[in-house]
Simulated scan of single mutants.
Amino acid sequence: MRVAAVQLHSTPDRDRNLAAADRLTREAARAGAELVVLPEKWPVLGTPEQTIAAAEPFDGPILHWATSIAKDLQIDLVAGSFSEKTGEERGANTSIHVGPDGELKASYRKIHMFDVEVNGHVYKESAHEAPGDEIVVTETANGVPLGLTICYDVRFPELYRILAVKGAQLIAVPAAFTFATTRDHWEVLLRARAIEGQAFVIAANQVGEHAPGIRSGGRSMIVDPWGVVLATAPDTETFIVAELDLARQQEIRRTLPSLANRRPEAYRWPTEVTA
């Protein structure tokens, strides 16, 4: 199975971003990709105010574009994520999976809100968007289970373990990882999640400066279940492709059965978070 991750330098200019996403998705399909993953917030990414101002209903232009291009190219498409208007005070950070028939297969709303401070810059995603509460496993056209996550989710191994236990063989990670955390954490986290879940991880990151002080680190990656990086993007708008050996994945899960050897009856969640 051949997959691709599209790396974008999204800006507040929606038309420019859509043109870049369309072009690179088509190029990835011409390179043989059966599944293409786009980055987080690719339709509009600028200041928090600019990004949220561009929010649209679930069945708006992004869903229309995704269903149209997936059907045209006959591919599975994880259309990154976009700012969704939900009718509530806060919206959602929403990812969609569309099949080669142009039909919506699944949607996922980011569970973990990016409320952090990085190099003195404070991010408060929860000020504009509410967290989702559903873990989602969908399936590609050729029957391979696919887990959906977004960016900051990658720091929460319990989510990825549950996706693997629910059968996910592939996990998509659309992201807009900050420049600093991309340099120091991105590859380590992606490889760890791949090894723990014995899953292929397809991580499509943003790259470049989106607004003053808001910069993503690129280095989109495709990682195999052994933790080997199959492809890494340079620091520019581009796409990467890799061939996934699903038979090798089954062999890894058979010979090093860490998923089967779990002992959930022995695990106890602390009632208090002391960290």
Rank of each mutant, 00 (worst) to 15 (best):
R2Y: 01
T11L: 07
P12G: 07
D13S: 11
N17W: 02
N17Y: 04
N17D: 07
A19C: 08
A21C: 07
R23F: 13
E27S: 03
A28F: 12
A29L: 06
A29P: 00
R30I: 00
G32S: 05
E34C: 12
E40V: 01
K41C: 05
W42F: 13
A53T: 01
E56Q: 15
W65T: 03
S68F: 07
D76L: 15
L77Y: 12
A79I: 09
S83R: 10
E88L: 15
E89S: 06
G91H: 06
A92N: 05
A92R: 13
T94H: 02
E103C: 00
L104A: 07
S107E: 07
Y108M: 09
R109C: 10
I111Y: 03
D115T: 11
V116Q: 06
N119P: 00
V122E: 02
S126H: 10
E129N: 08
P131Y: 15
P131I: 15
V137Q: 08
N142M: 12
P157T: 14
P157L: 14
K166A: 15
G167Y: 13
A172S: 15
T178F: 00
T178R: 15
F179H: 12
F179G: 00
T181Y: 05
R183W: 08
E187H: 12
V188F: 05
L190H: 04
R191N: 00
A192I: 06
G197A: 08
F200N: 07
F200D: 03
V201Q: 02
A204I: 09
Q206M: 10
E209M: 14
E209C: 04
A211M: 06
I214D: 05
S216M: 04
S216L: 03
V223D: 01
L230H: 00
A231C: 06
T232S: 02
A233K: 01
T236N: 06
T236D: 08
F239I: 04
A242W: 11
L244D: 06
Q249E: 11
A260N: 11
N261Q: 09
R263L: 10
A266H: 05
T271F: 04
